[in-house]
Amino acid sequence: MPETNEKKIVTSTSLRLKIGLAEMLKGGVIMDVMNVEQARIAEEAGAVAVMALERVPAMIRAEGGVARMAKPSLIKQIIQAVSIPVMAKARIGHFAEAQILQELGVDFIDESEVLTPADETHHIDKHAFTTPFVCGARNLGEALRRIAEGAAMIRTKGEAGTGDVVHAVQHMRQIVKEMKALTVLSEQELYAAAKEHQAPYELVRMVAQTGKLPVPNFSAGGIATPADASLMMQLGAEAIFVGSGIFMKERATPLDVENNPEERAEAISRAKAIVTATTHYNDPKILAEVSEQVTGTMKGLAAAAIEESQLLQTRGW
């Protein structure tokens, strides 16, 4: 195939298909769900995809223990229950979990710092898979290292399970700032920039030319309100992940969407409002309307109060 525009990333068929699905999710909300009922609520509220997991980050944070890939039976039930794409998380470096998720027909694998890492040196070789991967990043170097390994989508890490958007903001601003800085460098300076970012020169050069990542750049980690979603979109996110923000009540207690109609209505109102806010992120009138319709918000945990050793975002290398 002749390459007509050298600014466009030259990629393999496989990577183009992976990035293609990420393109389809743009402008949408991907919601963490722990059971079939939550998955149906997410789809009904307008989620573009669901992330199937056994415990949302807020519960993992509160309960501790080793957090692993979700049970295959749960993932299969959720795949059966909804028509939208289904994502699931594998532990960092745990390529066997990823192989199982691919076999189950999951549409996107999140190699996630929210789960307990399985390898303290190596991430998964994502080129070895047909299923696309999304990975978290706190800065440009981390994002480009993940892309070099084959990630088809990057998301800010933020600090999952807190309902505090501060770190998602910090990571998005950092990545955007570092990309802008590359665009004004001369060709000669890009080699040293690649060294500084600890990232492959080819990818650094590509960002310098285009001013953006060669894969979609989404936001995650602490987004809990329609205003949070709008904030991240205005800062440059192309779509939003909401983890604990929709189905959690207290820190470790989910809303009872199966038996309690009021709590079910609250989850639906949050989900719908965040979906609307993500599309109309630049329309304060609509944002005010949907913010008013939300009947509650997860309690949350100020990220600044979390001890360094308890942060999830520092996992990944």
């Binding site: 389809m24 509220a45 573009v48 719908k272």
Partner: peptide
């Protein structure tokens, strides 16, 4: 465009 038709329908 392409995307999720269920999401577009909600809007």
């Amino acid at each position: 465009p392409g995307g999720e038709s269920t999401t577009m329908l909600k809007f």
